[in-house]
Simulated assay, not measured.
Amino acid sequence: MARPRDPQRREELLDAIVGYLAEHGIAQLSLRPLAKALGHSTYVLTHHFASKDELISAILAHLDQRQRGRVGALPGPGTSGGLSLGDVVRASWAWHLSEDLPIVRLLHEIEGLSAAGRLSGPYVPKMLGDRAEFVADVLRAHGVPEEAALRKATLLNAAYAGLQIDYLTTGDKERVEAALDELAGTADSWTSRE
């Protein structure tokens, strides 16, 4: 009889796996070298993640949950010290550049491999759809009308991701952050003019 999966152990493994992949990338991911690098047997990984696809799906969900937790911890609209949409965009950018740059690279690598047809499975489209829904909920909480929230969330996500890729590619922080400020101002305008 198989041992039940330990959710806390799974989260610890995901943190270690994300750290490894942030350093080594995902294009050549193989469970055996990954397990060896983490000091585990392949069985430990397959016990918690039945397949490579399940592992990638779990990684994306894990990273998404981390970002949601950060945004959820920010003071919301209507609260003392509540942040504007633009402030939320800027706070997210600061986290990504100061703490999570290798993870941002990893996410864009995963998205790029999926766009190129080199990763099978529905996990990247699901992640992008879930991200759009989450951002739409944040927009709604800031007063963006229901009928516009998902469309504007999609636009905000795409522009934000494009700025990340521009920065990762060029390293031109000043120019990219000036554009980010413009994007944050646009997001703020959605709550004042809608």
Rank of each mutant, 00 (worst) to 15 (best):
R151N: 11
R151Y: 14
K152Y: 12
T154C: 10
L155V: 15
L156I: 06
L156D: 04
N157D: 10
N157R: 11
A158N: 12
A158D: 13
A159I: 14
A159K: 09
A159H: 10
A161T: 13
A161V: 13
G162I: 01
G162R: 05
G162T: 00
G162F: 03
G162S: 01
L163T: 04
L163F: 06
L163E: 08
Q164F: 09
Q164V: 08
Q164P: 09
I165P: 10
I165H: 11
I165E: 13
D166T: 08
D166R: 05
D166C: 06
Y167N: 05
Y167E: 03
Y167R: 06
L168F: 01
L168T: 04
L168S: 04
T169C: 09
T169S: 07
T170G: 04
T170K: 02
T170L: 01
T170S: 07
T170M: 00
G171F: 00
D172H: 05
D172M: 01
D172R: 06
D172W: 05
D172G: 03
D172V: 02
D172E: 10
K173Q: 12
K173G: 03
E174F: 13
R175A: 15
R175T: 15
R175M: 08
V176T: 08
V176A: 07
V176D: 01
A178R: 14
A178C: 06
A179S: 11
L180V: 04
L180C: 03
D181M: 10
E182M: 14
E182R: 15
L183I: 01
A184K: 06
A184Y: 05
G185D: 09
G185Q: 07
T186C: 11
T186Q: 13
A187K: 02
D188M: 00
